[in-house]
Simulated assay, not measured.
Amino acid sequence: MNFSFRETITATMILFAVIDIIGSIPIIVDLRHKVGHIQSEKASVVAAVIMTAFLFIGEEILNLIGIDVNSFAVAGSFVIFFLAIEMILGISLYKDDAPETASIVPLAFPLIAGAGTLTSLLSLRAEYHVENIILAIIINIIFVYLVLKSSNRIGRFLGKSGLAIIRKIFGVILLAISVKLFTSNLSMLF
């Protein structure tokens, strides 16, 4: 067993910043107003399954198409970099249609376990032990579940300016993470 408290905390913070469930509260609140009830339990479980499955079979999929984890981590650092730029500058580089319903697919997959999260998982796999990443996924899913359950109260409490400040703070953290992923994996490619 390769349990490391430091690795678990670092992986948890990375996933927390990439998932950005706090920054997604306005979207979740809007979904609640449109469709009424959000299935927090199902969305959380499906997102956890997607992330855990990708953690284990993502590398095999990459090997099947001839890409190593370090190359994917460098590419992932670019994705994380642009997500951070979106968060810091308040711009949208990636535009997606707003989901029509609050079903599992728009909530669990694009919002919680999106491209940035899956990229980050493989990038983390290149640097950390799997059991620490799984524990980080579990911690984040618990937090996601709690946020989904209380999104209306959190949104009212923080207000628009509070949510904007939190989003910018996590944007800077993501920016630093992207630089670290890029520099540590780029050297392994040569």
Rank of each mutant, 00 (worst) to 15 (best):
S4Q: 05
A11N: 09
A11M: 02
A11F: 10
A11K: 03
T12C: 14
T12V: 11
M13K: 09
G23P: 06
I27M: 14
H33G: 12
H33N: 15
H33L: 14
H37L: 14
I38S: 07
Q39H: 12
E41L: 13
E41Y: 11
V45P: 03
V45N: 03
A47T: 01
A48G: 10
I50H: 04
I50K: 06
T52K: 05
T52D: 08
A53D: 03
F54A: 04
F56P: 09
I57K: 00
I57N: 01
I57W: 07
I61R: 00
L62W: 05
L62I: 03
N63G: 14
N63S: 14
N63Y: 13
I67D: 00
D68Y: 02
V69Q: 11
N70C: 10
F72H: 08
A75I: 08
S77G: 13
F78R: 00
I80N: 02
F82P: 06
F82H: 05
E86G: 13
E86M: 11
E86V: 12
M87W: 08
I88D: 09
Y94L: 15
Y94P: 06
K95F: 08
E100C: 08
T101D: 13
I104P: 06
V105C: 09
P106T: 07
F109W: 12
A113T: 07
A115G: 15
T117K: 00
S120F: 00
L121T: 05
L122P: 00
L124N: 06
A126I: 13
H129I: 10
E131Y: 08
I133F: 10
I137Y: 05
I139M: 14
N140A: 03
I142P: 07
L146A: 14
L146V: 14
L146F: 12
S150A: 07
G155E: 05
F157L: 13
L158F: 14
K160N: 15
S161G: 07
A164P: 00
I169F: 10
G171Q: 06
I173D: 11
I173C: 14
L175E: 08
S178H: 02
S184W: 04
M188P: 00
F190R: 04
